[in-house]
Design a protein around this nucleic acid. Sequence first.
DNA 1: TAGTGGTCTAGACCACCAT
DNA 2: TGGTGGTCTAGACCACTAG
Lengths: 240, 240
Amino acid sequence: MRKPLYMEVAEEIKRRISEGIYKPQEKLTSEPVLAEELGVSRGTLREALTSLENEGIISRKHGKGSFVNKNPDKVLAGIERLDNLVSTIRQAGHVAQDKVLNIDEISIEPKIAEMLEVEPGTKGYVIESLRFSDDVPVIYCYDVLPGGLIDNKDLLKARYRCESLTDFFDNHTKYHPQKFVATANALLPPKRVEELLNVASTQPMIYLEGVMYDDNDTPINYGYQYYRGDKYQFKLVRSR
Amino acid sequence: MRKPLYMEVAEEIKRRISEGIYKPQEKLTSEPVLAEELGVSRGTLREALTSLENEGIISRKHGKGSFVNKNPDKVLAGIERLDNLVSTIRQAGHVAQDKVLNIDEISIEPKIAEMLEVEPGTKGYVIESLRFSDDVPVIYCYDVLPGGLIDNKDLLKARYRCESLTDFFDNHTKYHPQKFVATANALLPPKRVEELLNVASTQPMIYLEGVMYDDNDTPINYGYQYYRGDKYQFKLVRSR
DNA sequence: TAGTGGTCTAGACCACCAT
DNA sequence: TGGTGGTCTAGACCACTAG
């Protein structure tokens, strides 16, 4: 079984929506009937519907039915998604590029060491990088990796050939980034960021700072990013 | 059946975690065994585990088991949650206050009318309000309501006695806010915001702008907010 | 009352992981 | 290989909404 059945079912329903067989605001065929029609059990159909609901494509109303949302496309891909920045820029229809500025060995300062759950003064690496959209630098990234994660310093050179730190972790280490727990803020750029991104010192920036965890809850890097507020926007759905 | 069984099961597991029967990083009893032990079907147990996973309390690893996460408490309550701003400030340990500046009748301009799905020029109401933290104004809110939602203009006076527009909708109308679809940005304050929040014109602000929808996907208000970047921070979890 | 989504069961087989 | 979580089925009953 390549793909789980319920995913194929979800895709079939998406297809029907995009082909206009089910239109926004309209009710879907009821669960028992649709399950029969698609040749799956109701349980499997419900798994598919649940995933569509989580994606914001449909809404279910107890006793009434399941309805196609307005703008089933628009939403998604927002600030709560940990995506490759480069692919996010591409999806927005721009030419994207990643550039690593430098990789240096450092001694991790206490504040960051605590977040990374290592001893202060432990060896680590700092990676500075930029992301470009249509040849304009729009994001500055500063990342600190505990040295313990990297067996061999040469391994880090692979970062130059990756499109992001996440790609590097996925493809060259045994750690797989799962979530970035952060705080969001608005700040003016420090001198270095001002110069690298070539923005005015009065240009407000979106500032995200936090720690990345892998799927075993191991902290794998501390990082912060400055996003040009005039060039980069986050989509966001706040819900109850 | 008061509570669904799977919710009770989820609570029982949470209880075991908080009582230290299952400790962070440890593996839970396997699904077949735990289901038998709790006297429910494996399907029901899995529903409970899924909800715990969505809450970030456990992680499941195919072929290995389900594990209690570190810090099963901390996270959550971030930018993706549509919460009463006042209660959010209180939770952070500050004295919070809401103040409505004014409520005016207006003719809705085309750009906003489109977002609210009404005809340009339709009558509507503008509400300007501030949120205070320890007597310091930290958030400026500008909201536009389609006139059609409000039978009687006097009804709006109730807004003065609410702690937020969301409370007003919940308690005085038949509309119940469900989600705020928005964009996030960093901006410098316009003159009016600069004066009302008493901030420097160079103080970066977090700017959220979007449309609120009720549970039937009816747009119930357009709004934007300016948050003082130096006084207000958002928590945020970006995950895959 | 009829139809809808919500919950629950019992049992089966598959895919992943460590040994 | 044996144990774990992942997927799937068929059938039952409950709770909500509307006419």
